[in-house]
Amino acid sequence: MGWGNIYRRRANVFTLAMIIYIDYKALQKREKFMKKPKSDALWKKAHERNAKRVFNLMVELEGLWVKLGQYLSSRADVLPSAFISILKQLQDSLPPRPFEEVCRTIEKELGKSTKELFLDFDENPLATASIAQVHHATLIDRQKVVVKVQYEDIKKIILEDLKDAKSIVDWIAWAEPQYNFSPMIDEWCKEAPQQLDFNHEAENTRTVSQNLGCTSKYDSNKPINQVDVFIPEVIQEEP
C-alpha cells in the first residue's frame, strides 16, 4: 500500500470525525428548545447513526481501526449502548485476504514458495483477524502446523493509523475537555508494536508450551527471524 492510500485513509478518518462532531454539536444546540422525551429520542438516533458510520469505516479500513472498534465494544462505561451493540459485530471474523497475498508474504519472508515448504496448505483460513490470518498446513516432514501470516504492509498502515487516532483524540480533548481519551490511546501506542511482532508472540508461545510440559521435536531455542509469518506446531491433546 503506497502513501497515496495512506493519505486517503487519513482523509476518510478525519472527514468522518468532523461529520460526527458537527452532528453532535448541532444536536446539542437543538435540544435546548426541546422537551426531554423528544431530546432523548433524537440522541438515541444520533448515536445509532454515528455508530453505523464508525462501524462502516472501520470495516473498510481494517487493521488498527478494527482492533480499536473491538476494544471500544467492551467499554460500556465510555460509549453509548448503540455504539456497543454495533461495534460488537467487529468481534466476528473478517473477510479473508486473497490466497495470492498469503503466498507472496510467505515466499518473501521464508524464501521459498508454499509448495516448497508444505505438503499441504489449506487455502481457506482457519481464522481471520485485524492484522493477520491463520491457515492449517502440513510441513514436508508431515508435521501438522498452523501458519499465521500478517497482511501486506500492515505495519506501516497501523503505525500511520495510530498517528491519526492520536491526532483525533488530542483534537477532541482540545475541543471538548470533558472527553479526554489520551490515556487510552497512549496505551494503544505502546501495545501496537508488540502485537505486530511475531517474534514476541513466538517466544510467548514457547514459554506457555514449556510451562505446560508440551514436548516438541523442534529446537525450542531456535531463533525466529521471519517477523511476518509465524508457524507454531499443532499440539494434540493426549487421550
Rank of each mutant, 00 (worst) to 15 (best):
M1L: 04
M1N: 02
W3Y: 13
W3P: 00
R10T: 14
R10K: 15
I22F: 11
K25Y: 10
Q28C: 10
R30M: 14
R30E: 15
E31F: 06
K32T: 12
F33S: 11
L42F: 07
W43V: 03
A46Q: 08
H47N: 12
R49N: 07
R49Q: 06
R49E: 08
A51Y: 00
M58E: 13
M58R: 10
E62T: 03
G63K: 00
L64R: 00
G69M: 02
G69N: 04
Y71L: 15
R75V: 09
L79I: 01
S81K: 12
I86H: 01
L87C: 00
D92V: 08
D92P: 03
P95Y: 14
F99D: 02
V102K: 00
C103G: 01
T105H: 00
E107A: 14
E109H: 05
E109D: 10
E109F: 06
E109M: 08
L110V: 01
G111R: 04
S113G: 12
S113D: 09
S113A: 11
T114M: 06
T114Y: 10
K115R: 13
E116A: 12
E116F: 06
E123P: 00
P125A: 09
L126R: 01
T128P: 01
A129K: 08
V134G: 05
H136I: 04
A137I: 02
A137D: 01
A137P: 01
I140G: 01
V146W: 02
V147H: 00
V149M: 08
Q150Y: 02
E152P: 00
D153C: 03
K163R: 10
I168S: 09
V169K: 01
V169L: 07
D170V: 09
I172M: 12
I172E: 06
I172A: 05
W174S: 13
E176D: 14
E176H: 12
Y179K: 11
S182F: 03
D186M: 11
E187R: 06
K190V: 14
Q195R: 05
Q195S: 02
Q195I: 02
D197R: 08
F198T: 03
F198W: 01
N199R: 12
H200E: 11
E203F: 06
E203A: 09
N204A: 15
N204F: 11
R206F: 08
R206S: 06
Q210V: 10
N211Q: 13
N211L: 14
T215A: 14
Y218M: 03
S220L: 15
N221F: 12
N225A: 13
D228T: 04
I235Q: 10
I235S: 08
I235H: 10
I235M: 12
I235D: 06
Q236L: 13
E238I: 07
